[in-house]
């Protein structure tokens, strides 16, 4: 189905994804003037970014290969994530958190894969 250089299906897929994504990001602006959001809704909004991001982080770290939990310390994603939490909590520096935890992750992945640990 996707074996051709530029297939019609790919065109529909990319166009559809673009329309849907832009629509989601834009829709609140034209409709917001027509009604007022309840106060509770507005207060709930500040929990959205951390809650959504956490809901993306946790499964990708604890279930790196599908739907089975891997809570062992030989899971490089878990070790890297713990490192990121510790570094981020201590230094509050985003760049440092990302770079150091990536290095720890890659070292662990390499070490665990080759049985060095």
């Amino acid at each position: 189905m996707f074996d051709m250089g530029i297939s019609l299906n790919e065109f529909y897929m990319v166009t559809g994804m673009a329309v849907v994504t832009f629509g989601i990001r834009y829709i609140m602006f034209p409709i917001s003037g027509r009604f007022k959001f309840p106060e509770l809704f507005n207060r709930g909004l500040k929990y959205v970014p951390p809650a959504v991001l956490t809901a993306i982080i946790v499964p990708s770290v604890l279930m790196p290969h599908g739907n089975t939990l891997n809570l062992k310390l030989t899971n490089p994603y878990l070790v890297g994530a713990i490192a990121a939490c510790v570094i981020g909590g201590l230094f509050k520096n985003l760049l440092l958190t990302i770079v150091v935890s990536m290095i720890i992750f890659l070292v662990c992945q390499w070490a665990f894969a080759f049985g060095a640990v």
């Binding site: 970014p49 951390p50 991001l53 956490t54 993306i56 982080i57 990708s60 770290v61 490089p76 994603y77 890297g80 994530a81 990121a84 939490c85 981020g88 909590g89 509050k92 985003l94 958190t97 990302i98 935890s101 990536m102 992750f105 890659l106 992945q109």
Partner: peptide, 16 residues
């Protein structure tokens, strides 16, 4: 395994 970049970035964003 460069896909760890996403959780690493997002953890850094959640902490503050």
């Amino acid at each position: 395994g460069l896909d760890f970049a996403m959780p690493a970035t997002f953890i850094g964003m959640v902490i503050p």
